[in-house]
């Protein structure tokens, strides 16, 4: 079983923004929503590999900056009619600190 790994303080991610984490499993985008929920997705759009961390966050959805695909933050699934999925990672918020679990 993998462990929770400390990422950063919540304050270091802008609301409706994201940060990129370098990991042994590639780059992971950590998102913070307007309601301070946090999510983690492989930083690669299933469409053409765009860095999702650079997309705009609305509700629980991120819009890829390259061609506008929309992906759910919870599971990385593309919003219909597009089909595809970015791998998601467990992320939690605990007392103002963001934690990540690698798969």
């Amino acid at each position: 079983m993998s462990e929770w790994i400390k990422v950063c303080a919540l304050d270091e991610i802008a609301p409706q923004g994201s940060r990129v984490v370098e990991s042994s499993q590639g780059r992971i985008a950590i998102f913070r929503t307007a309601e301070d929920k946090v999510f983690g997705l492989h930083d690669k759009c299933p469409h053409k590999g765009g860095p999702l961390s650079q997309g705009m966050v609305n509700g629980d959805i991120v819009t890829c900056p390259l061609h506008g695909w929309k992906l759910g933050l919870k599971d990385g699934e593309a919003v219909a009619p597009d089909k595809g999925c970015a791998k998601s990672f467990a992320v939690k918020l605990d007392a103002g600190t963001v934690w990540l679990k690698l798969n």
Binding site: I5, K6, V7, C8, E12, A14, R19, V20, V21, E22, S23, S24, R27, I30, L100, L102
Partner: peptide
């Protein structure tokens, strides 16, 4: 900060 990549301790 927008430009910095976070390094983690695995």
């Amino acid at each position: 900060r927008e430009y910095e990549v976070i390094q983690i301790k695995e």
